[in-house]
Structures are given as C-alpha cells and as structure tokens.
Computed example of a mutant assay.
Amino acid sequence: MNILTQPIRLDDRPLSARIGLVTLATDHTTEVDFSVLPARGIGVYATRIPFANPVTPETLAAMAGDVTAAAALILPDETLEAVVYSCTSASVVIGDAQVCDAIRQGKPGTQAITPISAGFAALRALGADRISLLTPYTPQTTAPMAQCFEMGGFGLQGVSCLNLTDDRAMARLSHETIIDAARAALAPDSQALFIACTAVRAAGIIDRIEDALGVPVVSANSATLWAALRACGHAGIGGPGQLMRLA
C-alpha cells in the first residue's frame, strides 16, 4: 500500500453555514422541506428522537427528556448557526422556552429555533396580529396551541383542526386537502393563516394557498426555514410565500 506524503490542506469547513435538525422518528416532511438549503450553501444535518403515535399532549410531552441529547449528537464539538426542533405541538406542550434551553444545553452557543418561536416572529414580521389557526390535530391537542397563540399576543379569529391522531397520516394529506382546509379555516378579518405541524406538506405550496386565500400564509416549516435562513445571514431571498420575500 502506498501512503502518500504530499501536503494535505484542510478547508475550515465544507459549507459556510450549517443548520441542525432535531426531528421525530416518524417525521416524513421536515428533511424534505429543508433540502432547499444546500443549494444556498447551507448544510443541513439531522438527528431523530423517539416518538410513538398517537399525537396527544401526553406522547408529545414524553419527548422532553430527549431533546438535549439529540442536539448534542449533531456534529459534536463543531459549531452550528442554529438547531431547529421540528415539532410544533411538542414545542407548545413541553414549553417553547424549555425546548430552546434543552437545545442550548446540547449545543451551547447555538441559536435555538422552534416552529412556535419562528411562527410568532414570522407573523409579526408580516404585520399580522389577527390570525386564523389551522392544525391537523384533535381538539385536545389543538386547544393548548390556540392558548399559546393568544398568550403570545395574537387575536385568534378562528381555530380549525382536522382531528387526526397519526402524524404519518398528517404527512400524507394531499395538497388539495391542505388548500381546501385552509380556505375553510380562514375566518373573516384574519390578516394571515398559520398552519401548524411540521408533518404537513404546506411549505412547498405556500404560494398556491396564498393565491386561494388572498392573505399571507405561514406554515410550521416555512417559518422555521425562514428563521434558519436569517440565522445564516440570508434575508429577502425570494421563494414560495410572502414571508420568504421579506427583506
């Protein structure tokens, strides 16, 4: 075997920016939606944590103890621009601040992003404080989320849910079903619609939903994508939805 003795040069890191994802074991959607980032020079590195259906406050809360270890597994001892915890309902049930603290414990110095923190920031950036909320969940799982938005200062004009309990089914909702549900969920005087759940495949069709509704639409994944891009110094990049075009 020939051992080469030529000088070896190492770049600082292959990509200028890096995002970590903490996704559920059952997640079909987040990594697909985030696959648009590498073309912009942003690396995406994912790990998964245990989750067992059905989606209930109890099963969501059970993930609380796994977030820190999952974040720590992403490129150990290397820096990331941000770590995204990709579960809207668990961010509510566990507590958004607690989830962010758990991420930072596993990955000190990184920016922690959740669908709730990103969703709030996105809606405020769009100037929307009167909103409608659409979830794929049961009323039992939707109610704490509605309360979270109200406590965050948003006036809920309407709250609608699809009464599903399996996030794998949520990931299989057709685009037509999502658009029809969005139309039905938008209440009068709403300035925007928020579509919860990182399993729902709404981020890629935000333009179609906005065309159907005539107001800005923010989904869980479009919000976290937007926040991740901003963490990497990107803004006003264009792309699906009014949110992505904000400077």
Rank of each mutant, 00 (worst) to 15 (best):
A125M: 11
A64R: 14
M151I: 00
F149N: 03
R172L: 13
Q111L: 14
L37Y: 05
L173F: 05
G95R: 08
V217E: 09
C197T: 06
D166V: 06
T135Q: 02
A146Q: 14
T30I: 15
S89I: 04
A90Y: 02
Q147F: 06
R48Y: 06
C197P: 07
E150I: 06
I206W: 03
A228E: 08
L21M: 08
A146E: 13
I3H: 14
I42R: 02
A171Q: 08
G43C: 05
A72R: 12
E81R: 14
S89P: 07
A223L: 09
C161T: 13
V92I: 13
L173T: 08
G158H: 13
L80D: 04
L186I: 05
S222I: 12
V55A: 14
F194C: 09
D11I: 14
A128W: 02
L123Q: 08
G158W: 00
P108E: 09
A17R: 15
A146L: 01
E150M: 12
E31K: 02
L123R: 11
L21K: 11
L186E: 05
S16V: 10
M145Y: 10
A171Y: 04
R208H: 10
I205N: 12
A46K: 07
T224E: 09
L73I: 00
G152P: 01
L75D: 12
K107C: 03
S117Y: 04
L225P: 06
Q98T: 15
P76Y: 10
T224N: 11
A61D: 09
Y45W: 13
C148H: 02
F194Q: 09
Q140P: 00
I113V: 13
D166H: 10
H175D: 14
A143T: 14
A181I: 11
G233W: 13
T165R: 10
S91M: 06
D27F: 03
R124G: 03
S16M: 09
E31L: 05
T56I: 10
I49G: 01
T30H: 02
T138E: 10
V215L: 07
L243Y: 11
L126T: 09
A203V: 04
G238A: 11
M170L: 07
V84I: 15
A247I: 00
A128D: 06
A223V: 07
I94T: 10
D211S: 15
V67D: 01
L193H: 09
A169F: 04
V55W: 00
S117N: 15
N221W: 04
S16N: 12
S132R: 07
Q157N: 15
R230I: 06
A61C: 00
H28L: 14
A17S: 15
A227S: 14
C100W: 00
L162K: 06
Y137E: 05
D129H: 13
L126N: 09
Q6L: 14
A228S: 15
